[in-house]
Design a protein around this nucleic acid. Sequence first.
DNA 1: TCAGTCCACTAACTTTTGTTCTATTGTTGA
DNA 2: TCAACAATAGAACAAAAGTTAGTGGACTGA
Lengths: 209, 209
Amino acid sequence: MSISLIIVEDLKEVRDGLKNFIGLSSDFKVLDTFQTAEEALIEIPRLKPDIVIMDINLPGMSGIECIRLIKNKTPATQFMMFTVYENDEKVFEALKAGASGYLLKSTGLVQLIESLKELHNGGSPMSANIARKLVNVFQKNETNLPEIETLTFRENEMLQMLAKGLLYKEIADKMNISINTVKQHIHNIYEKLHVQNRTEAINKALGKK
Amino acid sequence: MSISLIIVEDLKEVRDGLKNFIGLSSDFKVLDTFQTAEEALIEIPRLKPDIVIMDINLPGMSGIECIRLIKNKTPATQFMMFTVYENDEKVFEALKAGASGYLLKSTGLVQLIESLKELHNGGSPMSANIARKLVNVFQKNETNLPEIETLTFRENEMLQMLAKGLLYKEIADKMNISINTVKQHIHNIYEKLHVQNRTEAINKALGKK
DNA sequence: TCAGTCCACTAACTTTTGTTCTATTGTTGA
DNA sequence: TCAACAATAGAACAAAAGTTAGTGGACTGA
């Protein structure tokens, strides 16, 4: 069974180039191609392709917006971004919208074919720089405040519960201590983190930007 | 200039197999291999390899802990996880600790060589499933609650300030309205989001798991 | 072994948050 | 034009959060 796909790309040369090259492989079947997100919006839910190759910069609606709008109508379809944009904003926005792969247009055609297979196989092929961007997000989020490490075991427990939105009373019950003790622990946390209230403590401890 | 590397892996067959195979390529130079994280901990900062291939499950200290401890001593060294673990916890923990690539041991040797080059080139090579895990994190974090959309403009403003940990009084001053109005708006937010307090509202609105 | 420190704990008190009820004004869509 | 909604606000009250002061046990270095 070959992999069905649709191409959304406004430039005729790129669109036809992709279609012709991918069509050479018996593993794929190009169902149709579109120049605009608006057309794709109507046709993709009808054709239900395995994969959509999506450009970002289209006349009118962007490719990202297009994915956002149809993602939940066609849950089985996988979206592969294929674009020149490699700035963080576009990358993260596209992934959040529902794309599962992200290739730059500098990618070779042979590599593209491999990536499409990988995508269909449950992977998330990405150009080298793009993958690194994702990894960086994790590393940056790593909380590394020296203050946090001075928290005692009990204080850390408190912080976790605090972050869930539990009341002092609920924390006290769960830990079998008096509500006053809870208050004292939390007060100590605030001092160590140099904050004034619950929300600031949570923001600081759980690595917000 | 060839890429220098170090292998940390407790199983002799795997360790020697990697060393011999990678050694065949003139692009790489295997500086040394270690069986434990404890040995690696001392030698890596001294040898300053371009790349470390790191197993997770080692006798004694884990490979992840090892990376965490030396990452800031050797900022130029890139860490490639090479392991059988593909559960979320290990993957994210490793990336947070400072790994930039994550390959499963099922990866073919030729693919491994390619991935090492990609890593050295600023990419973040990952096995297909691993990459998909990362992408999923982004997609899950995407707030998609129908309730949020029913919030009015003013309510959304409140929510943003609330999330910063501002007091009602501070919000009132900033918006030039009475503190009673602030209370009223926030009360309405809580009703719409079906929550009981500030922390729950923030958690719900800002897409915590 | 003794002084100093840290941790877990508690009570009494103040401030902030959250609820409830009422009411006015301006906007909008059926 | 009428109903619904958004934004505003006062006021009284209840509940939760946060502050301050202090106790006792365990450990630690001199």
